[in-house]
Simulated scan of single mutants.
Amino acid sequence: MHDTSRLIVIGGSWGGIQASMKILQALPADYSVPIVLVLHRLRNQEGSLQELYEKKLLLKAVEIDDKAPLEAGHVYIAPANYHVLLEKDHTFSLDDSELENYSRPSIDVTFTSAADVFGENTVGILLSGASKDGSSGLKHIFDKRGTAIVQHPGEAEIATMPLAAIHSTPGCSILNVERIQAYLLTLHGH
């Protein structure tokens, strides 16, 4: 069963690639909820994240195109130097406006627009990272009654991002990677 009425958004920076890879490797190819991944990369970093994920995941890893529709069984990867927004018709829009929190893509931008469209059916997951990006977006998801999950700071490669999110959203769930994985598997096929 494909459920595009829900959305999982995952953000991270330093250490976030490894953490998200571990989480997503557990998910089956027909996973029923679309997943959007926003990772900070170094501005001049060459090489495709999409290829990296494609090799290791059962899910289909695609870099986001403007106006592309959300589909289940996909991990959508934010392209370098664009903010990713979700539209009411469940398509993407890419935006190259100002940096937010010194970042483009900004996790806050994607988390906030996801919560505005999907409300309580949004699952936001913030992983390891060295900035505070994502904390206000995660709070917005939580305020819209979505699910707010933060990687346990003790497990994160760099705890700055998880700690900032825990500070801004005291009601969030603090889970290690294995428990995040287990939670995402419970969403499958419901």
Rank of each mutant, 00 (worst) to 15 (best):
H152A: 12
T4Q: 00
D65N: 11
E71C: 06
L37F: 07
M1C: 14
G15F: 09
G146N: 14
G119Y: 07
L99Q: 08
A148Y: 06
L27F: 07
V75T: 15
K139Q: 12
E71F: 02
I17V: 15
I35S: 06
Y31G: 05
K67S: 05
S136C: 00
M21A: 09
T4I: 14
S113L: 06
K88H: 03
L59A: 12
P79L: 02
L42N: 13
T4R: 01
L7T: 00
L187H: 06
T122E: 01
Q151L: 01
D30T: 12
R104Y: 05
V123N: 12
E178D: 09
D96F: 02
D30K: 11
Y53K: 05
D133I: 01
G154M: 04
K139C: 06
V33K: 02
G124V: 05
S168N: 15
L184T: 10
C172N: 11
H188N: 15
R43Y: 06
H167R: 15
H2F: 11
D116R: 14
F111R: 03
V84A: 00
P28W: 09
L24K: 01
Q45A: 15
E54Y: 01
T186N: 13
D108F: 02
I77Q: 15
P34E: 00
Y102L: 08
D96H: 04
I10V: 12
S136M: 01
G12H: 05
R41V: 11
H167W: 07
L85A: 02
I17K: 10
P153C: 03
H40P: 04
L175P: 03
E71G: 02
L138V: 01
I158F: 13
H188W: 10
Q151M: 01
A148F: 04
R145W: 09
L184K: 08
L163W: 01
F142P: 01
A165I: 03
L86K: 02
H74V: 15
F118E: 11
G73V: 11
K88I: 03
L59I: 07
I158A: 12
I35R: 04
P162Q: 06
A19N: 12
S135A: 09
L86D: 00
Y31I: 02
L163N: 10
E46H: 09
K56G: 15
D108C: 07
H152K: 09
V84M: 00
F142L: 10
I8F: 01
G124T: 06
E87A: 01
Q45W: 04
D66E: 09
P170L: 13
V117E: 10
A114Q: 14
R43L: 09
A19P: 12
P105H: 09
G146V: 13
S20V: 06
N121C: 09
Y82P: 00
F118G: 14
P153K: 02
V36G: 10
S97F: 04
E51C: 00
G134A: 00
K55T: 15
Y102G: 14
